[in-house]
């Protein structure tokens, strides 16, 4: 990707809320068809990096460049949503349509557009439901629908699989893959190394500063993971995929280490 094609470019970005930096010297470039996951432990700066891309956090150092006129869709962490707010699915989705029509009620075209987005995400027919009356996966899709209604060029998602079951996680991953294949750039944060990160084409690992970047094969290695999480982690091969294992869970009841075929650092980076 040439520099001229970038949608967003961060150079040496440092952000701080208090005394110490939450994010230090981060570089990141997102192109039109990129699909990137940001991984790292809690407090590593993932959400701050996302907010720097969004422009809701002002860096104390470094620069954030966005392509002029860039349309960004943002799906926040579900934990930050007020689920008791009196809003139906259709009302929540329609919220992002704040320009153009000023009348409170939606036009026929807007209603059709909302129905189309909901159908596309597999939650058609739920428009009249209150947002709390949905499953975790459906709730996540409501906010994905709200972001998509803006017809974004870049979609940012903060922990999109947090609090959802395995099936919903698969569905969300498949949806995002389809959207990306359709030309939408996707940048997301995730804690889920095996269920999410390992399936993404490109990863950035973060622990205040960037500790690694590349394909899952290049990032999900014992060395990068130890730099990122500050603890030794083992990586297995399963069906051609990397599986990250916390060694603590591989101790048998007798205290002996379970036999595993861990990927050594020498075989990484293929």
């Amino acid at each position: 990707m040439s520099a001229g094609e970038a949608l967003v470019r961060l150079e040496g970005v440092t952000c701080a809320y208090g005394a110490g930096p939450v994010l230090a010297g981060a570089d990141l470039e997102i192109g039109p068809r990129d699909f990137t996951g940001i991984v790292g432990p809690s407090g590593s700066g993932k959400t701050t990096l996302l907010r720097a891309v969004l422009g809701t956090v002002t860096p104390v150092a470094g620069t954030v460049w966005r392509r002029p006129g860039l349309r960004v869709g943002y799906v926040p962490q579900v934990e930050t949503v007020n689920w008791s707010f009196p809003v139906t699915v259709a009302e929540a989705v329609l919220m992002s349509r704040t320009t153009g029509r000023r009348l409170p009620w939606p036009s026929a075209a807007e209603r059709a557009e909302v129905a189309s987005v909901l159908d596309r995400l597999g939650i058609g027919g739920l428009g009249g439901r209150h947002i709390r009356e949905l499953s975790g996966g459906q709730q996540q899709r409501v906010f994905l629908a709200r972001a998509l209604l803006r017809r974004p060029q870049l979609l940012l998602l903060d922990e999109p699989t947090s609090g959802v079951d395995v099936r919903a996680r698969h569905d969300i991953l498949r949806l995002l893959t389809e959207l990306n294949a359709g030309g939408l750039a996707v940048l997301l944060t995730t804690h889920d190394l095996n269920g999410m990160a390992a399936h993404l084409p490109h990863l950035v690992s973060l622990n205040t500063s960037v500790t690694g970047r590349g394909t899952p094969r290049q990032v999900l290695t014992p060395e990068v993971l130890e730099r990122t999480y500050g603890a030794p982690m083992e990586v297995l091969e399963h069906g051609g995929m990397r599986v990250v294992v916390d060694p603590a869970v591989l101790v048998t009841p007798t205290g002996a280490r379970a036999p595993i075929s861990a990927t050594s650092s020498g075989r990484d980076g293929r």
């Binding site: 422009g55 809701t56 960004v72 943002y74 809003v87 329609l94 992002s96 704040t98």
Partner: peptide, 23 residues
């Protein structure tokens, strides 16, 4: 309230995303 219905609703429900969405 009539004229700014959508923006007031978005700001009340989700100020961060409302701001990002141009409100």
């Amino acid at each position: 309230v009539f004229a700014f219905y959508r923006k007031l609703l978005f700001t009340t429900f989700d100020p961060e995303v409302a701001g990002v969405s141009g409100v």
